[in-house]
Amino acid sequence: MRIGIPQETKNRETRVALTPDGARALAEAGHDVRVESGAGAAAFLPDREYEAAGARIVSTTDAWDADLVLKVKEPLEHEYGLLRDNVLFTFLHLAANGPLAAALVAARTTAFSYDTVQLDDGSLPLLTPMSAVAGRLATLEGGHHLLSPQGGRGVLIAGAPGVPGARVVVIGGGVAGSHALAQAVGMGADAVVIDLDQGRLEALAEAHGDAVRTVVSTPEAIEREALEADLVIGAVLVPGHRAPTVLSREAVMRMRPGAVLVDIAIDQGGCFEVSRPTTHDEPVFSVGDVQVYCVTNMPGAVGATSTAALTHATLPYVRALAGGWESAVKADPALARGLNTDAGTVRYPAVATAFPDLPAGPPAAPVPDGR
């Protein structure tokens, strides 16, 4: 099979969909691996390492002209003309991206999204490594923007002898939220985590002891904690769906001057009412006296780490797709749930619900209950 790896074009995206070791594994299995020239350079993976692994270095067009295209981030508008009726495997977050959903349907692309590949227990094996990275980065970036030169409150997350650390509130105790929380605790913050799941809160309390205060999620509790926070990290996820809004604009306007919001859920539309996508070049905007950070490709800031972690997670699924996507989805319900579009139809229920004007087909596998 011809397997193409284009260069990522999103702002400051340093990841690439496959490491040279991953390319070697596919080439040794007999596949024609095509890597766009320079695709790995930002992750310090030069073309020569891919060539040594058995891949061919090709143009943009040749990387997309493959039976299976592997990417990290969703195709951008200027890439829509490169879409075709082949297989695409990448992060899509389609429920928050109508134009891309329509473009994939029009191109008749068989599109699998990393973020909807889901095991029977509800876990997301391909989203998990990037969520962990984004969670850690959320606390680091939030701490950076709390600094006075960045327009923040001038509060150090770790505090100082005799001075308490910053109040960091994490909304959502899943993978991203738990990693953000662990980073905050490790840096010495006065940490709070809010979640709907009492069992999850108990697990986080057991992991961190007195270093964390747990709060059961209600709209009133979220607003109360946000108003006392220096840094609020939104890590709310409903797999495959647009993120729910958990903090209103009116509440944000009443937060402490110089406070910071970081919205990890921005790929899925964002969980703060004020959220809108930002880039690594211009990561924040102001709402009243609050700084809001909504970078849509946070793990791209650490491309070497993220590329390795992503390849480790995706390679078994890539191997399966390279053997034929129809047989792959029949053999693996988790991968089947990753199918978002095929043959001019939407195949993922939440995306079909979000965009009822697009033609829809049956899901390739049922989504686990309790998502």
Rank of each mutant, 00 (worst) to 15 (best):
V216Q: 12
E51D: 00
G81W: 06
A251K: 11
V367C: 07
A350M: 06
L76F: 02
G234Q: 10
E74M: 04
E223N: 11
A52L: 01
M253N: 05
L45D: 04
S286F: 07
A211H: 06
D197P: 00
A301D: 04
A211T: 03
N86E: 10
L335R: 06
A42R: 11
V367M: 11
P129C: 10
I157Q: 05
E79A: 13
V284P: 01
L100C: 10
V58W: 12
D342M: 12
A184K: 05
A320K: 12
T19V: 06
L83E: 04
L26V: 12
E225C: 02
P20Y: 00
L119Q: 07
H312A: 15
G142I: 02
V33L: 01
R213S: 14
A309R: 05
G151Q: 02
P244L: 08
R24V: 08
A354I: 03
V262I: 10
L358I: 11
A304N: 08
D190N: 10
V236D: 07
T345K: 14
A205I: 00
F112K: 11
D85C: 02
L104S: 12
V318M: 00
G186V: 12
E223R: 15
A365D: 12
R56S: 15
I171R: 03
E223M: 01
P299W: 08
L146Y: 07
G40E: 03
R2D: 10
P368G: 15
G142F: 02
A336I: 01
P299E: 05
V133K: 09
L321M: 07
V274A: 14
L227R: 15
G162V: 08
V133S: 01
A301G: 14
L140Q: 15
S148E: 04
L146P: 10
H280T: 04
G40K: 04
G154N: 13
H93F: 06
R12Y: 09
P359V: 01
E206W: 05
L156W: 07
A322Q: 01
G154W: 06
A111G: 12
V287I: 10
V193N: 09
M255R: 02
E51T: 13
I3K: 05
V246R: 09
D342T: 13
S131H: 05
T279D: 10
L82C: 02
L140Y: 11
A243P: 06
A265H: 01
R84V: 05
P20G: 07
E49K: 03
R213E: 14
A101G: 10
G288T: 01
L335C: 11
S306F: 02
L127I: 05
L83V: 09
T353I: 11
T353D: 15
Y50S: 08
L310Q: 06
A360P: 14
R371H: 09
D210V: 03
V236I: 15
P363G: 14
G323A: 03
E13F: 00
V346T: 13
A52H: 02
E79W: 04
G40N: 00
R56W: 07
T139I: 09
A304H: 11
V212T: 13
L18I: 02
D120K: 04
A158K: 06
G270Q: 12
E79I: 06
R56N: 13
E282Q: 14
P316A: 08
N340I: 01
A95I: 13
L76E: 06
K10R: 14
A354D: 09
R56D: 13
A343E: 13
P75W: 00
R24W: 09
V238Y: 04
